[in-house]
Amino acid sequence: MSTDNSSRSIQDLRAGLTSVHIWMVFAWDDLVSRYRRTTIGPFWITISHAATICGLAFMFAKIFKRPLDEFFVYLAAGMTCWNLIANSLGEGPVAFMRAQGLLLSYDLPASSHVFRAVAGQFLTFLHNMIVYVAALILVKNVANANTLYLIPGLVIVLTAALGWTFTLGVLGTRFRDVSPAVTAFVGVLFMLTPIFWEKSALGSAVWFFNLNPFYHLVEVIRAPMLGQIPTMTTWVGSIASALASIVIGCVSFVVSRKNLSYWI
């Protein structure tokens, strides 16, 4: 196996993608070790998620004068989707940084830390889904056959997440201010994306959402969760975003892989 840097980077990417066992071991370990000294472990994620949704639902149903049951389910779906995207953006810049010890000790594929991060976000998403499912059972069932569109929707969102985790991971290793910048950006994005408010509240300003790739990424999984089929604009917008993200991500990684150990 002879190597020069760019083919070695591509080799790293391929090895990372195919060593599913490695990143599943990592992702599970991350989840468990975060809560190692607690009794209910990762279900703290679920509890804090439920608490946020309850709080927001009671307040904003009143403010927007919406029926509580409908708004509750809307939020349970929306916040679950948003958390997946926002947490993944926030984790991106530290994806390689927190694997410092391993990256500087073993010649294991560095890309596995990106797959690990996204797999971990997916596991967290599954924990948060419990709140959504509980809302369906206890508050109002809106799920139907259209909910199956959640599966292609998740494929799209996770692809986009892989892409930006690669890009942000590389940038965050080289530049230490990327992580706080992303945190600030995600905070603003939460306000600008219809999660805790509804799109209809903005009336004719629809063009504004159509330019926001994160709106499409939320909507491509939220619509199915609310029993709707995503619109064509959302399919196109989310798929285009995911493709752009993964292409930029892979290029950033292949170009920068050789420098990772020096930057970290």
Partner: peptide, 23 residues
Amino acid sequence: INWPQEGRRVVQGRISSIIALGA
């Protein structure tokens, strides 16, 4: 672990290493 900026590295076989204490 370090990738050379110039030159080539060729390897055949699995590597086991201890580079830094406890790393």
